[in-house]
């Protein structure tokens, strides 16, 4: 935690955010599989065990349902746990606890039991680790009322979203795209905060709005650069928060550009891209110059070989093509 802005990796930003939280609030502790001695399966918590000891950096057995549930219980009972799940696929073993307890206790108890819990997990494909380690289910989690869903895509957000998430009285799930851990960027100066209720404009444009988050943001920005060389000025909105969606920011951008492309590493059917598209249709249908377009992951379990994995995922050329198409429909 230095005072000045500094370049660092997303992994290091996340590590510093956890460390800051542990220093600021003694109710905070980290628990999950191999977070301690192993240093975290993505090395995010490396060194923290030595600094904070095993009571606050707790290695858990392979018991996702039990330790996520225990995080919920500890949150209900006065602590501020950060629970790490290795990857989103394994979070399915804890889905019962997340949905039936974390998301539900407050409402079901008539407002008596808030669950101030943070659950972090890696998500996403692109590493050739096949169908049981590659899914993007954050949009699917965003279906659930009672939890908040964050998807930091930049080093700044990785560094700054954790603290407000811990201050939030609700369960907050943070999805970290596994390909981002090695990405580098500028971490902000100490004391800098980000608003975890708002989307963020990453590039201004007038011709088309591109909506992205997490692992697809960088690809979408690349597509926007390429479109600019063709004279198409794309606006790029980083959704950042998948629940509750920042509908105002989405509608404001579409009102300006009159065209929208949603980029999502989740599957198309019933996904967050469908929700965004529906909100645009509900909120500013008459301002649209073209139907909303979507670039999503093909509806398959993610295969191992690189060429098939690449073909399954949203890629820059597909984003460019979709943007051109909606702009061409100018009428």
């Amino acid at each position: 935690m230095s005072g000045d802005p500094a370049p660092m990796t997303y992994r290091e930003a996340m590590r510093q955010a956890i460390r800051e939280a542990l220093l600021r609030d003694e109710r905070v502790f980290l628990m999950g599989e191999d977070v301690g001695r192993y240093g975290g399966c993505y090395a995010v918590s490396k060194g923290l065990l030595d600094e904070f000891g095993p009571a606050r950096i707790r290695d858990t057995p392979l018991s996702e349902s039990a330790f996520v549930g225990a995080g919920i219980g500890a949150a209900v009972n006065g602590m501020r746990p950060i629970v790490e799940i290795m990857t989103v696929n394994f979070s399915l073993l804890a889905l019962d606890q997340i949905l039936n307890n974390a998301a539900t206790l407050l409402h079901m108890s008539g407002g008596q039991f808030p669950v101030p819990l943070v659950i972090r997990m890696a998500t996403g494909a692109g590493r050739q680790v096949a169908a049981q380690h590659s899914h993007s289910l954050e949009g699917w989690y965003a279906h659930i009322p009672g939890i908040k869903i964050l998807a930091p895509a930049t080093v700044e957000d990785a560094r700054c979203m954790l603290w407000p998430a811990l201050e939030d009285p609700n369960p907050v799930l943070i999805f970290e795209h596994a390909l981002l851990y090695n990405s580098e960027g500028e971490a902000p100066a100490e004391g800098h905060t980000v608003d975890i209720s708002r989307a963020r404009l990453r590039r201004e444009g007038r011709d088309v709005s591109l909506f992205a988050y997490g692992g697809t943001l960088a690809k979408t920005l690349q597509a926007a650069e390429a479109l600019a060389t063709d004279g198409i000025e794309a606006e790029v909105v980083d959704l950042r928060v998948l629940r509750p969606l920042d509908t105002a920011a989405i509608l404001a951008s579409v009102a300006k550009t009159r065209r929208a492309v949603v980029v999502d590493e989740g599957w198309r059917s019933g996904g967050i891209s469908a929700e965004i598209s529906a909100r645009i249709t509900e909120g500013c249908f008459y301002e649209l110059d073209a139907p909303v377009a979507r670039v999503c992951t093909r509806e398959v379990p993610i295969p191992y070989p690189k060429h098939l994995e690449d073909a399954a995922l949203p890629q820059v050329p597909a984003i460019i093509a979709a943007a051109r198409e909606v702009v061409g429909n100018r009428g």
């Binding site: 096949a130 169908a131 049981q132 191992y304 070989p305 690189k306």
Partner: peptide, 16 residues
Amino acid sequence: YGKVTGCSRGRGGSMH
């Protein structure tokens, strides 16, 4: 290798 002649058509790789 992930080749189509693999026992899972290459789709699973080492783990599947």
